[in-house]
Simulated assay, not measured.
Amino acid sequence: MKLFTPSTWSRTTPPPDPETKLHVAPPNADHAAGAVLWGRGPTERFMYTSSEAHDSDGAGKDQGFHRAHDISRGRVLFPFSADESGDAGAVSPDGSTYVLITCGENNRHPIRLYDVARKSGHAIAETTLEPSASQVATFEATTATFSSEGRLLAVARSDNAVHMYDIRALTKGPLAAFRHEELDAVGSTGYGAVHACWVEGRDRRRVGIVSGGNDGCVRVWDPLIASSDKSQGKVLARTEFDVAYFAMGDMWMGEKPLVLGHCGGGLYVYDHLDADGLPIC
């Protein structure tokens, strides 16, 4: 629930009991709660959960439980067909589609597309992430995110790359692949591209993907031009450590354009103006 804004729950549906417990896995599975995502629009009362084994090297390490919960009723609505350990997930802007990325045996990473508006736990499309040769043992998807119109999907990966998919042709593989520079940042811990988000112009005609990698940079990519174009990967911010996380603000709402935290423990806030109030070119 949003604690500091007026309640959005209808008068006919009471808010959830704060003591309601939703099990993301059977009690005897010894799994941790991994990804937890809310639905949107017609599925705003849904919550999607994925589980991971506590012991990443033990028995059942590749197993996961993936469920859709009905929050208004406090129960499991339906399970998803995937049974591997959870990596990442994303909900489309209109709430009708859920993407789940998992990690199973032999380092296999399926991307599955679900029609949650129809309350279906069976995948309607599927493809597989292919790890780079240098990331065979540790490869994973770190973030998945839809563009504002819900057609494109960006997936940030631990091999320092971001892949873009058209969900209408998911089985054909990525439309483009964008890669941060080699992993040469000071104190590099090898988490790769840890986060990605979409940005767009005020008229929404131009879109871009912003990602942070362990080259210490936050970069912007243009999905409308070739991934090999020299203008790709323009640096928005650079630090001396790996990027741990970043957030983009809405400049049209007066928010700071970028907040960045790095693995050295630093937090940077970027502005369009310098200390004298002059525009930064």
Rank of each mutant, 00 (worst) to 15 (best):
Y98N: 03
S147C: 14
R238D: 11
R168L: 10
R205I: 00
N160D: 09
N28H: 12
P18K: 03
V199Y: 02
P27W: 03
V24N: 02
R179H: 10
Q135V: 00
D222G: 04
R45L: 12
K230N: 07
L129P: 02
L37A: 08
T143Q: 04
T102I: 07
R205C: 05
S231C: 11
G95I: 01
A125H: 00
A32Q: 08
G261M: 14
V220Q: 08
D166K: 08
T143I: 01
A185C: 13
H163C: 06
Q135T: 07
I209Q: 02
L3V: 04
R238Y: 03
A247E: 14
G187M: 03
R11G: 13
D276S: 14
A90M: 08
G190Q: 02
A137R: 09
I280Q: 11
F146V: 05
S158V: 00
G173P: 11
D83T: 15
L273K: 13
N28V: 02
R204V: 01
T102W: 05
F241M: 07
A193D: 02
F46P: 05
S85H: 12
Y268T: 13
G261T: 13
K119N: 07
R73E: 14
L170G: 10
K61G: 00
I111R: 04
H122N: 06
A133V: 05
P6T: 11
K2Q: 10
L3E: 11
E255P: 06
R40F: 01
D62L: 02
W9E: 06
F46I: 07
G201S: 15
L77C: 08
D229S: 15
T5I: 07
H195I: 08
H31I: 01
T49M: 13
E130W: 00
G86I: 14
V220A: 05
E149C: 05
I111F: 02
F146L: 06
A237S: 12
G261C: 15
R219F: 00
S158L: 03
T49L: 14
D274N: 15
T145M: 04
L37Y: 11
S72Q: 11
K2R: 10
P131H: 04
A176R: 15
A247M: 03
D229W: 04
R112Q: 14
R108I: 11
A144S: 12
T171A: 15
P279M: 03
T127Y: 02
T128S: 04
R112K: 13
S134G: 04
V210A: 03
S134E: 15
I280Y: 01
L278I: 01
R112E: 12
C103Q: 12
V194N: 09
R73A: 12
N28R: 09
V136Y: 03
W38G: 10
S188N: 14
M1S: 12
P257T: 12
D83E: 12
W198T: 03
L37M: 12
E84Y: 09
V162G: 05
V36I: 15
D276Y: 13
W198K: 08
L152M: 09
L100A: 09
L170T: 09
D215I: 05
E84L: 04
D159N: 14
R151W: 01
S188V: 13
G213C: 09
C263I: 00
P6H: 10
L267E: 08
F46E: 13
S56A: 10
S147V: 01
I71H: 00
G74K: 01
T138F: 06
I167N: 04
L3M: 12
A275K: 14
L3W: 07
S231W: 04
G213D: 09
A88D: 05
H262M: 06
D229G: 06
M251S: 15
